[in-house]
């Protein structure tokens, strides 16, 4: 057999073997058989000595060409096999991604905290500072400085828990406003969130302990229109641009004029529904211009300064926002209830 014939045969056999090889071991064996020290091509190269000298260069060139070709084919097959093997490995490693695992899910703040936080964000955005104060409070701050003198019938509206004759569980967060007026100079812009107490028996819509947030602005030129503007902005930030406020006349001893403030019903957007009892409005806030008597009692010159104040019950907002119909759920602490809440 001449060399050309042998080379052709080697190539033919190689082609068949390359077809047949399917794994790394087979490939390595084939590479050794073709190109190894005792491989077919090496042997052929060694046998070249038997050729006439003038034919050797050509023969060498032919063998090298075949070697390069085979090497390229083997390399290509090598990467193909590597890829296949990786695919097999990856397939073996596949997991059931739907399989549940024991883990601790994220927790959450209480809905009252979530709403309180949201309101605070709105008001700090408008330049209000947050101030907190004591829950056990002097009658003086809770009532007297707010134009609710002892034995005033308006105190009836706020059934009060007493600790001593002159110490009460605060019935609103307004005493924080009184304390602030006594210690800070105008202009003042504050909101006072916190827990408050009234002697109401527990039922679906009442609780002796609940939460409020009150706001106070004192400056030289504030008006009832600024109050409405502020509460409009608050309503829109909380419930969206289509929500507005409606002011109705009311009476609070610490404000004059006073207003009950309704918001467009968040449930029906003003069309009238069960939540708003068909009126399209829901009562959410009390507000008004600070009574000049209050300013004077708190050491602020009512000739120079005016102010407005507002107060909102957080539970009411929470219940409307999350569709809660029984207030007691807020205080009993069942995780199945608590775990439904998340930040917006």
């Amino acid at each position: 057999m001449d060399m050309q014939e042998q080379l052709r045969k080697i190539q033919e056999e190689a082609a068949a073997s390359l077809e047949a090889v399917s794994d790394k071991a087979g490939l390595d064996a084939l590479r050794l058989k073709l190109l190894g020290k005792k491989g077919d091509l090496t042997m052929l190269l060694r046998s070249m000595g038997q050729l006439p000298a003038d034919m050797r260069p050509k023969a060498g060139q032919m063998i090298n060409e075949v070697r390069e070709k085979l090497t390229a084919q083997l390399d290509a097959l090598d990467s193909k096999i590597k890829k296949l093997e990786q695919e097999k490995k990856l397939a073996r490693e596949a997991i059931d991604v739907t399989e549940p695992r024991k883990h601790t899910p994220l927790g959450s703040m209480h809905p009252v905290s979530l709403v309180q936080d949201q309101l605070i964000d709105v008001f700090t955005g408008m330049g209000f500072d947050v101030v907190e104060g004591p829950e056990v409070e002097y009658d003086h701050y809770n009532f007297e400085l707010l134009n609710l003198p002892k034995n005033h019938p308006a105190r009836d509206a706020q059934d009060t828990f007493y600790i001593e004759d002159n110490i009460v569980l605060r019935t609103h967060t307004s005493p924080v406003q009184a304390r602030t007026m006594l210690t800070r100079k105008p202009p003042i812009r504050i909101v006072c969130p916190g827990r408050v107490y009234r002697a109401d028996e527990v039922d679906a819509t009442h609780s002796p302990v609940f939460h409020q947030m009150e706001g106070l602005v004192i400056d030289e030129d504030v008006t009832m229109a600024d109050l409405k503007g502020t509460l409009d902005a608050f309503a829109k930030a909380l419930y969206g641009d289509d929500v507005t406020t409606r002011f109705r006349p009311s009476f609070f001893p610490f404000t004059e004029p006073s207003a009950e403030v309704d918001l467009t019903c968040v449930n029906c957007h003003g069309k009238g529904c069960r939540v708003c009892k068909g009126t399209g409005w829901i009562e959410v806030l009390g507000a008004g211009m600070v009574n000049p008597k209050v300013l004077d009692m708190c050491g602020i010159d009512s000739k120079k300064y005016r102010g407005f104040a507002f107060g909102v019950g957080l539970e009411r907002i929470v219940m409307l926002r999350y569709g809660i119909t029984d207030m007691r759920a807020l205080y009993e602490g069942d995780v199945r209830f608590l775990s439904q809440f998340r930040e917006d």
Binding site: I120, D129, V131, V217, M224, G229, R248
Partner: peptide
């Protein structure tokens, strides 16, 4: 009361802050 306009507060516009405890 329905004639009350909505106006925005004038004066400083710096954002407010939460108190240290909060």
């Amino acid at each position: 009361y329905e004639h009350i306009q909505s106006t925005l507060l004038r004066g400083e516009t710096a954002p407010g802050t939460r108190n240290v405890h909060m």
